[in-house]
């Protein structure tokens, strides 16, 4: 029988390049910490934050169960090690705190493909093909090799996975694990979540897909709920969650069977179609 699955959100990073706590960065009006925990909680038996000792009293973090490092100053591998020590019978789904594009489908893919007889289950990075350690499942048996790895003076969890017996998966949504390190990256990502009216209501939208986008999305239509304020924000959301690979500047938009502007506000019940380059005649 496989070990129960717990969740661990890594929140102890120093956010040096961002110069702001990345877990407090808001997308769609919600801090990343709350967004990530909301994704994680329904999928695991228990969920925790990995924190530095000096973050224990942080009000944002104090709302959740927390685990502090056993071996300090080791970076994320120290956080993973602490969780494996704290609940040794559990496997841990570990998430970095700076993955705003992560979606439930990606986590479900990881959990469905979990290989409990191996040390870990992880995605191959869609950027360089190497194991992606910060959205991965670490089995209880990984604790001893991780301890040995740290004792040998190593810290990089990616290198650890590259040398371990790991189940490696292909990401269905290639952008789902893109992380945010700098203020410029945040500004860009932030814009893609339709921030301007993010506090507004969610809308039910019907999306229809044609031609190349239909094949990429693997469906011809769907009904979704979204905070996206306009077609631009909606396309950013869908291109991440559905793996759409055409760029917005290559597409046109139709709303309710009429050509529309990318910035036209969306309304409840709208039908939205992204039109790939046409080729009639």
């Amino acid at each position: 029988m496989s070990a129960p699955l717990y969740g661990l959100l890594l929140t102890g990073g120093r956010s040096r390049r961002m110069q702001r706590d990345k877990l407090r960065l808001e997308y769609g009006g919600q801090p990343q910490l709350a967004r990530a925990m909301a994704l994680l909680e329904p999928l695991v038996e228990r969920s925790f934050l990995s924190v530095r000792a000096d973050q224990l009293e942080d009000p944002l973090r104090a709302a959740y169960p927390r685990i502090t490092d056993v071996l300090p100053e080791q970076g994320p591998i120290g956080g993973i090690h602490a969780a494996l020590c704290a609940e040794g019978q559990a496997a841990w789904l570990v998430l970095a705190g700076d993955l705003p594009f992560l979606d439930a489908a990606t986590l479900q893919q990881l959990i469905a493909a979990r290989a409990p007889h191996r040390l870990a289950t992880a995605f191959r990075s869609s950027h360089d093909g190497k194991p992606e350690p910060l959205c991965a499942i670490f089995e209880p048996a990984s604790r001893a090799p991780i301890e040995a790895w740290i004792a040998a003076g190593q810290r990089c969890p990616r290198d650890f996975l590259a040398h371990a017996d790991v189940e490696l998966l292909v990401l269905r949504a290639p952008r789902a694990l893109d992380n945010i390190n700098t203020a410029a990256e945040y500004t860009q990502a932030h814009g893609q979540f339709g921030e301007r009216t993010a506090a507004g209501p969610q809308r039910r939208l019907k999306i229809q897909y044609f031609a190349m986008l239909r094949e990429q999305a693997g469906r011809s239509e769907e009904t979704i709920t979204s905070h996206a304020a306009d077609a631009r924000a909606l396309y950013a959301e869908l291109s991440a969650s559905r793996g759409l690979h055409l760029k917005p500047e290559q597409l046109r938009v139709a709303i309710n069977e009429a050509f529309a502007d990318w910035s036209q506000p969306l309304s409840e019940g709208d039908t939205v179609v992204f039109l790939p380059p046409v080729a009639g005649g």
Binding site: G12, G13, S15, A53, D69, E73, Q74, G75, D98, R158
Partner: peptide, 10 residues
């Protein structure tokens, strides 16, 4: 280089 990947994050 996830900010916390190499440098000590704590």
């Amino acid at each position: 280089g996830h900010d916390h990947a190499h440098g000590p994050r704590r």
